[in-house]
């Protein structure tokens, strides 16, 4: 819109620049949250990092033209999964002293090297590949998601609901077993 756009990209305080800044904030939240979730000493902090990471991922979904999935991400992951993990920590994880020694061979530098190798190789692959761009045949709106969910993917939709039902019942049975009264 602005005629004074420098050739390197949008200015920081134009609309596009602010959008880009918000995107960078979302990426930073995702990566920081992931770092906290995988490295924090105490599990409660790891869950807090997981929540930050999920909010950042929801922001990325928003940038990917999917506000519906972004909303579901916050509802399901932040609202349900992270809270469930927090409850499990409260029920099952006293502040136990970290037992020193007897760590496996993968802990420490080897685990870090494996993870760094994996993500580094994937990143190189991503950057070197020439991804094709195809034309869209639909707009991907919420209305179309609903229609496809109940026509093309109706079978999977029903199966997922059965899986969720069985998972909830199974979780109740497993967690209740061995408890008196």
């Amino acid at each position: 819109m602005t005629p004074m756009v420098p050739p390197t990209g949008p200015a920081l305080f134009s609309v596009e620049g602010m959008v880009g800044m918000v995107f960078l904030v979302a990426v930073a939240m995702t990566l920081t949250g992931g770092l906290i979730a995988s490295n924090a000493e105490r599990l409660v902090r790891a869950v807090a990092g997981l929540i930050i990471c999920f909010v950042g991922v929801a922001g990325l979904y928003f940038f990917l033209n999917s506000p519906f999935v972004a909303m579901m991400q916050i509802l399901i992951y932040v609202g349900a999964v992270a809270v469930t993990i927090a409850f499990a920590i409260m029920l099952a994880a006293p502040e136990q002293a970290n037992k020193p020694g007897s760590t496996g061979p993968l802990v420490g530098p080897f685990g870090f090297a494996a993870a760094a190798l994996l993500s580094g190789a994937l990143t190189v692959l991503v950057i070197r590949t020439d991804w094709p761009v195809r034309e869209k045949i639909t707009t991907g709106s919420v209305r179309e998601i609903g229609i496809q969910l109940l026509t093309n993917h109706a079978m999977v939709f029903e199966l997922v609901s059965i899986v969720l039902l069985i998972a909830i019942l199974g979780a109740l049975v497993i967690a209740r077993g061995g408890r008196e009264g």
Binding site: G20, N39, F112, G120, L122, W131
Partner: peptide, 30 residues
């Protein structure tokens, strides 16, 4: 090619996804 237009390119998202995957693998093994 400014950092502020990264949101409109596929490799950005794929790189973030790869980094999340690596963090997850590191968390599982450590």
């Amino acid at each position: 090619s400014s950092a502020l237009t990264l949101y409109n390119s596929l490799p950005t998202y794929l790189t973030v996804g790869a980094l999340l995957f690596g963090l997850g693998v590191y968390g599982i093994v450590s």
